[in-house]
Design a protein around this nucleic acid. Structure first.
Lengths: 227, 227
DNA sequence: ACCTGAACACCGTTCAAGT
DNA sequence: ACCTGAACACCGTTCAAGT
């Protein structure tokens, strides 16, 4: 079959990469809950079962989508102190997650780490070790960071959406929360309903942790449990 | 209809509480993925549509299940320093989540905070304020804690399951991770495959954060952004 | 080798009807 | 008032068949 015939009949062969990239784009467009094998097949002008030649099942599709997003994280910077390297990489991971709002939930739902996640975590562990943290401390530091290593905000609820005017009943039932909300409104400066500055909160928590780790490193901290 | 007749015909009327308690018990038993409206109805010896008189839809059922678990968290201790109060409450929340392994995912999937979560967060904010943290600092501290306030481990993957023997190929591809795994194996003392001490890692991260907050409080920290 | 069609065993939810 | 039965519009996935 010549290229012209292929173009004419619109028979472009599927492959794993095309499936994954279409899945990522579709999830970006319609949300992860609306992404079904059937809907994805429709997007690729193909019958649902055609997908199963390139992906064992939906879980494997989600694995591939997670790895696609993790693959977008920038490589580590060189020639900086370890805190800058780690900080910059995590902020890059956060930007990747913000580009694909469904990605955090998908990564979290994987039962085990995918190859790209393992590679990323290995690289991050290397950055801590290169910065002079012991293997012992690096281990606990990686656990303490947890999903934040991949740019997860770890907030309880997505505050980025439309927050509307503050509920007048809220202050009566939840006085302390109302007080904090008022604080945010004053600080934000811009729109009152806008709520919190997610980027500020993310960096506040990140820097608090990194500073804590550096303090432990300087103290020569080791876990006190028996060997 | 007398009570005997009611007993004989097994017609026990449904109500919201009975539905929620059955849902929690069923999720504990068969896992959250297997919990469907149809399966829950079957457990209650009722036709699926009977549930919709007591719960608007499945989302509202999940809301109720989340609040049931959050309601199990112990009240705050009295007469201690703020760090002990907060720490004890969060460890209680963690125990509740460990009793209901599905709960973290369900709470996280709620689009907004449920009433029990709001009440809990308000109470926690109060504990920080009573400890002498400013409203400003308390606000950022609550964000920094995020889901950890409710006992979430925030780890990337569930390390508590059966971890099996270490993959021999892992050391070759991911040398830094292999080194950390070796550290954990030595420390754990007990079974080599057992992996990490989740409780230790949780308390390590928690105490690091609480210590950081107390340091900021002593310094009289305020967010430096314009008012 | 790669794609198709029909079917299976499920979902959450509606609607109109029963008692 | 509370529960039921049947149906609708979906799922992920199997299997045997097409080309």
């Amino acid at each position: 079959m010549t290229r012209q015939e292929a173009t004419h009949t619109q028979r472009i062969f599927l492959n794993r990469d095309r499936v994954l990239r279409a899945a990522v784009a579709l999830a970006d467009a319609i949300g992860i809950d609306a992404l079904s094998m059937r809907r994805l097949a429709q997007e690729l002008d193909v019958v649902p079962m055609a997908l199963y030649k390139h992906v064992a099942n939906k879980e494997e599709l989600l694995d591939g989508m997670a790895d696609t997003v993790v693959g977008e994280i920038d490589p580590p910077a060189v020639g900086s102190d370890w805190q800058s390297v780690v900080r910059g990489r995590i902020l890059s991971a956060r930007r990747a997650l913000l580009r694909h709002p469904w990605a955090a939930r998908v990564i979290e739902s994987r039962t085990g780490p995918t190859p790209a996640v393992l590679a990323y975590l290995d690289s991050m562990a290397g950055s801590f070790r290169d910065g002079g943290l012991s293997a012992d401390l690096t281990h606990h530091v990686m656990h303490a960071m947890g999903s934040r290593l991949l740019g997860f905000s770890q907030e309880l609820f997505d505050t980025s959406g439309p927050s509307g005017p503050p509920d007048p009943g809220l202050a009566a039932h939840y006085p302390h929360i109302a007080e904090l909300a008022a604080t945010a409104a004053h600080e934000g400066g811009s729109t009152v309903g806008g709520g919190c500055d997610d980027q500020f909160e993310f960096e506040f928590a990140l820097d608090l942790l990194l500073d804590g780790f550096e303090r432990l490193r300087r103290q020569g901290w080791t876990s006190t449990r028996k060997a």
